[in-house]
Design a protein around this nucleic acid. Structure first.
Lengths: 312, 312
DNA sequence: GTGAAAGCGCTAACAG
DNA sequence: CTGTTAGCGCTTTCAC
């Protein structure tokens, strides 16, 4: 057509307001696609979640998706609020660590056909996509490792919640102890108490009352921090004598003296699988409604053996 | 009016589709307000940034704003891309750690009158809002503290970048050393090398070539981690002999043996001030265009003295 | 093939 | 003070 002149003018126009960029908001309103994925964790400042967030972020950006991180503080009300909030913003997908009481809301979200993947924990009687690790086996292997290195009185410090991942860790510990005919010693702290003086007192009391303990297994990274801090405060020598193992690895454990043995969750694998599933779900949406199966991935954690559990 | 019947029906309608919620996308398109604030840092998985992110998130949610976190990897290209991306999404405000070469882009963003606050570092010749700490003085005080406890050959391990915060830390160190008539020993590593074998080698070589060093000052948290790891690998005994101090505190430093002295940035204060400024800017927008002044906040860091720098 | 028109879901301005 | 209408900036459809 003979509109080359017009075209030229248009191009010039463009060059003039060189910094034209389409309004993504309008685009999203029209297309129903925001290219945003929500990544909801307990606490974004927790090392484990922050590392994972970074991995997710990198993969998502590669594929043209942006990630919104948020912390639900393991609180049902906040979790539901956040889900509603993002639903109203029409985000394309959800990666969520659910708090214990949001099964209904998660069920609703799943039914709405918006891509959804849970991780870290799940609802056994709800058919959703999820990526978790085999917590029971990881805790079992860790406990066995400690017993095999000659420790006999192994304490287990955990938090008193009904979440699957914590329950499974406890099961693994108990199973290994029973198998060896050893008596378990458990401290169940209320959630959130780990950063309070009461939590510290409870941990101190636990060690005092169980003075025969020769090793301790902390079930999550923040308990390890508090636990080690309490021990160091009350009885610094004990840090070298006690066998110590913990769930969730951290770079700082390697440079401790003694360095701390840990169950390391496979961060890269978790992040990669989460995004694989998410991207598949996102891609599928447009296609014909196949009776899509849910993806349920269980990964194995690895045991990082260090000085704190060496045979004495 | 006599539309009570209609009203009733409407209410019933509402009750029927009980889960009606306004489409935020359309609302934002119409009003030009998204209630989203961007929080752009170097790396969200870095402890310092993750903690700060959490503080910002809490304040923002209280005020009805959501936060999008992202990592610019200290890369100019990625920073610019991210800014464009969010500009097209019409976010309401930006809190940014700028990489070194984005002065122009930051200048443009500032001129567009969208609320903007920088932090951690700034551009000396660009009049923007920012919140930083007094890095020079913090490093000066830390170095002085080490010299006052009898250390003489104090090494300074840092990264070779032109960012104000790193330059200032170096200045503080040099100033304190000069004042005491001590000879400085510096290792300038290329950015990003801290996680490579080359970086580790360079650090090992530094300690080998400067065998008279009796103390070391790491200029940022990730260097401390790598540095301590290298020392532990090559000469574990040295960890107890060497005076050690580091920029950026971490809970794990307290439980180390010996515990590690650190310059602690005031996280709460930084987060609070950033959001105070941001909220003020957000509120102001609608009001009459007062010749608003920029806010330039310089906070003091505190010195956490622990075992690693005690007098020998 | 190109160009005009309709409409995503909301809010602001306007008329009754 | 209520009810209608225009339009935010885009994409998709439809007519040509």
């Amino acid at each position: 057509m003979g509109i080359s002149e017009e075209v030229t003018r248009k191009i010039l126009d463009h060059a003039a307001k060189i910094n034209y960029t389409p309004n993504q908001l309008a685009q999203s309103l029209r297309t129903g696609k925001t290219n945003i994925i929500v990544f909801m964790v307990e606490d974004i400042s927790n090392h484990f979640f922050a590392k994972l967030a970074r991995i997710i972020e990198v993969i998502a950006y590669e594929k043209g998706y942006k990630v919104i991180f948020c912390s639900n503080e393991n609180d049902d009300k906040k979790t539901v609020e956040l889900i509603h909030l993002f639903r109203d913003r029409k985000v394309d997908g959800y990666i969520i660590i659910p708090s214990a009481g949001v099964k209904e809301e998660i069920s609703l979200l799943r039914d709405s056909k918006i891509p959804l993947v849970l991780f870290d924990r799940y609802f056994p009687d709800l058919d959703t996509n999820y990526v978790i690790i085999d917590n029971r086996n990881a805790a079992y292997k860790a406990t066995r490792h400690v017993t095999e290195n000659g420790f006999r009185n192994i304490g287990f410090v955990t938090i008193d919640v009904q979440q699957t991942q914590m329950q499974d860790r406890m099961k693994g510990y108990l199973e290994a102890m029973e198998e060896k005919g050893l008596e378990p010693h458990m401290l169940l702290l209320p959630y959130r108490s780990y950063k309070t003086p009461e939590g510290r007192k409870a941990i101190a009391a636990f060690f005092q009352q169980n003075s025969a303990l020769d090793a301790v297994f902390f079930s999550t990274n923040y308990l390890t921090l508090t636990g080690l801090s309490v021990i160091k405060e009350n009885d610094p020598e004990k840090l070298r004598e006690l066998g110590i193992i913990t769930f969730d690895d951290n770079d700082f454990f390697s440079i401790q003296t003694p360095s701390i043995s840990a169950v390391a969750q496979p961060l890269e694998a978790i992040g990669t699988r989460l995004m694989e599933i998410m991207l598949e779900l996102l891609g599928e949406k447009g296609e014909k409604e196949a009776p899509q199966e849910t993806h349920q991935v269980i990964l194995e954690a690895s045991l990082e053996v260090r000085e704190s559990t060496r045979a004495r």
